[in-house]
Design a protein around this nucleic acid. Structure first.
Lengths: 173, 173
DNA sequence: GCGGAATAGTCAAGCCCTCAACTACGCTGG
DNA sequence: CCAGCGTAGTTGAGGGCTTGACTATTCCGC
């Protein structure tokens, strides 16, 4: 509580760059609770999945998206969007999954620039093996901890934030 | 919605490894809204801070923790815990902040094994410059979007999850 | 149909993080 | 008082991610 940089002029309520709209103590607690819990939960789930199934959560996400698609294939760009991933990152990740034999690339017939990522049978089996581990983690660390009201609020908050973030242009990806 | 791996035996409610407790459609939506919103928000704040202040959010976190401490210094381990960071990661990060002249290391007198990370005046100035940018991002992308009730619920959910995660032993860090 | 702009995807360099040693110091029991 | 163990922190190797440049293809206007 000593020498906080925002302890200067707390009584302001001006706009943006002029006078920062500092967070009060309650807001800080809310923000930290949200940030820390989301970081720790994501980290925990990723570690458990990596340890017990040998699949990092990011890779798991890719497999899930492909498995839910007709033909179990998808354009690289769309896959990147759905996985909240940059194209470069997805390209690297798919290369590594290709080495594991879980995905193969296929040129897109309707667009010569495009590539399709296709989930292989081996990839589907790997996903089937990993899914119970992941879902158990989400149950244990999330749904088992929250009341139905909290779950509803969590969804509501998440969707509210997503609407804003989707509508606001990020510098780039 | 095609060929989902968890479409097999939905009617079970047995325990853990035996029969997975799959998520129903509502739970999936809640989970994805929470996961995606927290990932996107963290990413957005990190990018804005990096772009406009030249400080990644992880480094900012370190500076904040030190600035709030009497003497603006802290043991490496405690700093790592507060930043939700591994010791190795913090050690690397402090080395890089040392190169920027924002932190210096100092041996701990009461424990010859220990090191203190000390925030320099330059580091404090860098934090002062970055803080308004960060707080404006948190306002814009979080608090401006949510009602007071949503903020209260967010904090409640976050604290509930943190209690569980802190109480549950993670394999290791 | 042709030239320029936009789009799809990949690649390389550099940074950051993780994992697993490793050093150094402190603590405790015999 | 020292052997062994636990703790604090660092380091290096290896791999993932980001940025920005690059190639290939398609779209669009004239």
């Amino acid at each position: 509580m000593t020498s906080q940089v925002w302890a200067s002029s707390q009584e302001e309520s001006a706009q943006s760059a002029a006078q920062p709209r500092w967070l009060d103590a309650e807001e800080q607690k809310a923000w930290r609770a949200w940030l820390n819990s989301s970081m720790l939960l994501a980290d925990r789930l990723d570690r458990e999945l990596t340890r017990e199934a040998g699949i990092p959560h990011g890779y798991y996400e890719i497999l899930v998206q492909l498995s839910e698609t007709p033909g179990r294939m998808m354009r690289m760009s769309e896959l990147a969007d759905r996985c909240l991933s940059s194209r470069s990152r997805l390209s690297h990740a798919v290369s590594r999954l290709e080495e594991r034999g879980w995905i193969r690339r296929q040129v897109c017939e309707s667009d010569g620039r495009g590539q399709l990522a296709v989930l292989t049978d081996d990839g589907f089996e790997a996903l089937e093996a990993a899914a119970p581990i992941h879902v158990e983690g989400v149950r244990t660390h999330l749904f088992d901890q929250l009341s139905p009201e909290q779950v509803a609020a969590m969804r509501d908050i998440g969707e509210t934030l997503l609407r804003h973030l989707d509508a606001t242009p990020a510098p780039q990806h």
